[in-house]
Design a binder for these strands. Structure first.
Lengths: 253, 253
DNA sequence: TCCAATTCTTGATCTATATCAGCAAGTGAA
DNA sequence: TTCACTTGCTGATATAGATCAAGAATTGGA
């Protein structure tokens, strides 16, 4: 609560540290005229880093901003009536979280940092106003929301139709694509979430995630060392996932 | 193809038949000034009815419009690489289909009529332009997309965490809420989709859907007569579903 | 209205994955 | 460093729901 409501800017030292990085270009990847970039920058607030486990916002809280992840990772989740957590998404740098709150004006999920995480806060009412003046910004917003719908529907296919092997392979390749898009290695990366969180997200028991990964390693598909993952046989992994996933296979922006 | 690309207006006879129904108010439920309603009406095209089984658009086809269902029902689906159909949603009257096409400028799914169905075609580029001039329209669009994201995430929870009973109960209550919202009975309605389609959508085998419904009937929760469903014990059904579903429980618009 | 094709239902089995259990390996606080 | 706690791995067993099979009920076309 305290955290997500604190809109304080950083101290001048930290602010200046970020000033000449084209922040908004990162947050909302889009080609804008310089003056528009400035206008966008003016409404964006840098927040203090979240420590692992801290909430960015929580389920039911009033919606007023979307957030762009700068560094670190977030998860969003629901608490179901039976008290268990259901993870609905993981958010890596450059990804936008909070869009689901627009409709009801309340966040329908909570967002929690999986590691030390920094975000930009973008007050939605300002963003919406600005989008009236900058058509390409409005279009980009529509696109981002459309992509989210598309991605979520792929996730529905995964949950409804795929077996444990396909789920885990899809998950790892999806992360791989997201890292690659950001300019990081597509074949070697660190999982910021636990096995339990992966299982929760994929609709699998922890033990199943563990077993599948071990078997993938045994079969030379990947190399696992705790949270460090290397994809060894990308072709075979892609074969497992199948050429499906309309949304996921196309590289964005 | 032919169908989804034909933007021909109806003959004058049909057009006049619809002219004095406030069409846009139905398509995009929103309070607009009269002049704005007219502007919206001008960009909306009524299409000839689709017969059962006809495609409104298909996976991969270029995106140019979203569609509001007027009467009947649609399903959207992917064809997976293994050739099977995966249904990603059902669309009842007043609901908007096609939003997932904005991002890539191609529909990532196909949309097929489950029965004779009429839709309004809303060319998205026009809608987007108009939304610049009518802020409340833009906001409504953001809300609709946000709600879709929210609903899809509830669906992910359903697919990932719920058992067969909970899935079927959730499905029936979700339909019930949607009918109620439109002014129809929340307790007695007709399923326009087959058991097979329900199972496909819920990640269950046809047989399981059949068995669960039979058991629900035996236990006095519902009454089933082919495609006619009556919800007898609403309280018990809601208990089955659980008080979860942030998005679904709140009545919209 | 009749026949063929589809859809639905019900029962019998099978299986992928959950659950249970116990141990190993990290991780963090004092 | 040690201890308590969490996270991860692996084997044994249980089970929800899939699959297989066959008959019943609908549906739709001629």
């Amino acid at each position: 609560m305290a955290i997500s409501n604190s809109n304080n800017r950083f101290s001048s030292k930290l602010t200046s540290q970020y000033q000449n990085c084209s922040l908004s270009a990162l947050c909302l990847p889009i080609a804008l005229a310089d003056e528009d970039v400035n206008r966008l920058d003016q409404i964006i607030e840098r927040k203090r880093p979240l420590k692992k486990g801290e909430l960015l916002f929580h389920q039911g809280e009033e919606f007023d901003s979307v957030f762009a992840v700068r560094t670190g990772t977030l998860k969003t989740f629901n608490i179901t009536n039976s008290g268990e957590e259901q993870i609905t998404g993981f958010y890596c740098p450059s990804e936008l979280v909070g869009l689901s709150g627009i409709d009801e004006n309340h966040y329908p999920v909570s967002a929690k940092a999986l590691e030390t995480t920094t975000v930009c806060e973008i007050p939605f009412s300002h963003l919406e106003q600005l989008s009236s003046q900058i058509p390409s910004l409005k279009h980009q917003l529509f696109r981002l929301m459309s992509r989210k719908i598309c991605d979520d529907q792929q996730m529905m296919v995964l949950l409804g139709k795929k077996n444990a092997d396909e789920k885990v392979a899809s998950f790892l390749l999806n992360l791989s694509h997201r890292f690659k898009k950001r300019g990081y290695s597509a074949t070697a990366f660190r999982l910021s979430m636990s096995r339990g969180e992966i299982g929760n997200y994929l609709g699998l028991a922890v033990e199943t995630v563990s077993r599948v990964m071990t078997r993938f390693q045994k079969n030379g598909l990947i190399d696992v060392d705790g949270k460090e993952i290397s994809i060894i046989d990308m072709a075979e992994m892609e074969k497992l996932v199948g050429a499906s996933s309309e949304c996921a296979t196309i590289e964005h922006v």
